[in-house]
Design a protein around this nucleic acid. Structure first.
Length: 363
DNA sequence: AAGACGTGGGC
DNA sequence: TGCCCAAGTCT
């Protein structure tokens, strides 16, 4: 045997090997999943919806994205609508999805498209790459899916598929260039968008991180990783650093009418631009009451709430205790009074909603 | 050019 | 329970 056996496209003696890409596309056509941002074959993709979905899907599961995508496209049907939106409204609509720099860059990008591109997304990877929040992957994905351009689309799924297919044992992220070159070698000229989505779908379904369904894979016979019994162990990755534990004290400040004092976080950095329950900084050292209270935006007769809020971010664990106090009201810099029934519409990230839940539960 | 940057689900 | 993971980007 000199190489992989390819099925023939036509029965007969003139055996034409079917390229790997064609076999993947056949699989995709048969297994095509219906997602709100996906279009029927032959239907023109709306670059706005492609862009929005790709940004939402960065490091985020399909299941988590669907309701946000539907909410955004209903409320802001075009990139011009989004460009005209209030920052606060967009941040509130994004609340819970995570990686909030994406939402800040989403607005920046929409406004650049409006102001510098006549309201139309550019159609080349190079120009897309210049827009805020669009990196190598997203530029390639939009070029391929929205504009049908051949592009080497490499996300985490593709890295997994390719590293298995070619039995790349060097660990990520060092092997990224190698994987990109190999991915390039398989990428066809035709059906660029379908091929990109097919690769990602393959990684998301059959070629999954654990228990890959090799028996159903259109590339089963060609996969070096499977042949070598390595598939499930790939891609290799360098070990991640341990997450430190940080601690903080949050201040649940209630006014006579039940309104709670919330604060706007700094525009950049962790949870940048989002709303918070005021708190001390988060540090590894434990807080004494005397250490913490000077960070409260108001003075009050503090009473500790029962329990603890635990939350894990990408790079640290967080434990928050909560001090509750009653304040007279008034204005405080960067702060607003919000009734509990209005919390829903606030740009409160999940960790902050955990504090709200804890406090309201002891109302 | 490592590290910052969220969250929820699965095992 | 705790760790790994998901359609990455920015600095």
């Amino acid at each position: 045997m000199t190489g992989p056996v390819h099925p023939s496209s036509v029965a007969g003696s003139a055996v034409q090997p079917v390229p790997l890409s064609a076999r993947l596309l056949d699989w995709y056509d048969a297994e095509r999943r219906h997602l709100p941002w996906r279009y029927a074959p032959g239907q023109a993709a709306d670059p706005y919806r492609v862009w929005l979905s790709e940004v939402m899907l960065q490091q985020t599961t399909v299941a988590a994205v669907i309701s946000y995508f539907n909410a955004f496209t209903t409320r802001w049907p075009t990139v011009s609508d989004l460009a005209a939106a209030d920052d606060e409204a967009v941040m509130a609509a994004w609340a819970g999805l995570g990686y909030y720099a994406r939402a800040r860059n989403l607005l920046k990008c929409a406004r650049v498209v409006r102001d510098s591109h006549g309201g139309q997304f550019p159609d080349t990877e190079e120009d897309l790459r210049r827009l805020p929040g669009i990196g190598t992957y997203t530029a390639a994905a939009i070029a391929a899916i929205a504009f049908g351009k051949r592009a080497v689309v490499v996300d985490g799924n593709v890295e997994r598929v390719i590293s298995r297919m070619f039995a790349v044992t060097d660990p990520l992220p060092g092997s990224k260039d190698q994987i990109r070159t190999l991915a390039d070698s398989l990428t066809p000229e035709e059906r660029a968008g379908d091929y990109a989505q097919a690769m990602m779908d393959l990684g998301a379904t059959l070629c999954s991180p654990r228990k890959p369904a090799c028996g159903l894979c259109p590339w089963m016979r060609d996969c070096d990783g499977r042949k070598q019994g390595l598939a499930e162990q790939l891609p290799a990755k360098v070990a991640k650093a341990e997450k430190p534990l940080r601690r903080g004290v949050a201040f649940w400040i209630v006014r006579w009418d039940g309104a709670v004092l919330l604060r706007r976080r700094a525009p950049e950095g962790l949870l940048g631009g989002m709303t918070e329950v005021p708190s001390t900084p988060w540090r590894e050292e434990e807080w004494s009451r005397a250490d913490a209270v000077p960070y409260a935006p108001v003075s009050a007769d503090w009473r500790p709430l029962r329990g603890l809020v635990r939350h894990t971010f990408t790079h640290f664990h967080l434990e928050l205790t909560v001090l509750s106090g009653v304040a007279k009201g008034g204005e405080y810099p960067g702060c607003r009074w919000v009734l509990p029934e209005e919390m829903e519409g606030e740009a409160l990230p999940t960790v902050m909603r955990k504090i709200v839940r804890l406090a309201l539960g002891q109302g």
